[in-house]
Amino acid sequence: MAFWQLTRLRVVYPALLFFLLFVDGSLMAGMGGILTAFPWYILPTLTLVWLFYAVQFEVDKDMPFWLYVILIGILFDMYYTGIFGTYTLAFIAAVAVMKQLHKILDERLLSGISIFLIGLIVYLVVTYGAGFIIGIANVSLVTFFAFEVLPTAVLNIIVVTICYYPTWSLFQFLK
């Protein structure tokens, strides 16, 4: 593998990660009427989807992946909530769990979806827990799972499925 090919992935991957962080926010603002139509509360988590692809297609070994995860977590906290720690921890925990699961499961689409689903649940549960620490959690766990985790998982799994093969080919091209 030539050096410039390695660099290509190292540039394109974080650039898209950075871009998707803002796309999440723009989607939430632009389609808020649909995504937060009472009683649903659906979050676009394209950033996490992108991190999942790196784990699933094993491109994380070709770049300083953990550094990107931590940096994107800090940026997310700084820009979206102003409270440091929550999403940094959520991203790290979700990626760590997805990495462990990836060792057990294979690369088929269904295994991939299961890995992502568990990663997403970890991500959302960490944010729920952080809400308790600062005393702003005001929704019961049942409501949280029924109206937030469930629809969020459905939406994001659809995204994961649609983009699964295109992303795989993109990584093959960049590798």
Binding site: G25, M28, L43, Y79, Y80, T81, Y87, G131
Partner: peptide, 15 residues
């Protein structure tokens, strides 16, 4: 004009 909205569980904030 709203330019973004935090895609977060709590503290839904507009930018």
């Amino acid at each position: 004009v709203t330019i973004s909205r935090s895609p977060t569980t709590w503290q839904s904030q507009l930018v």
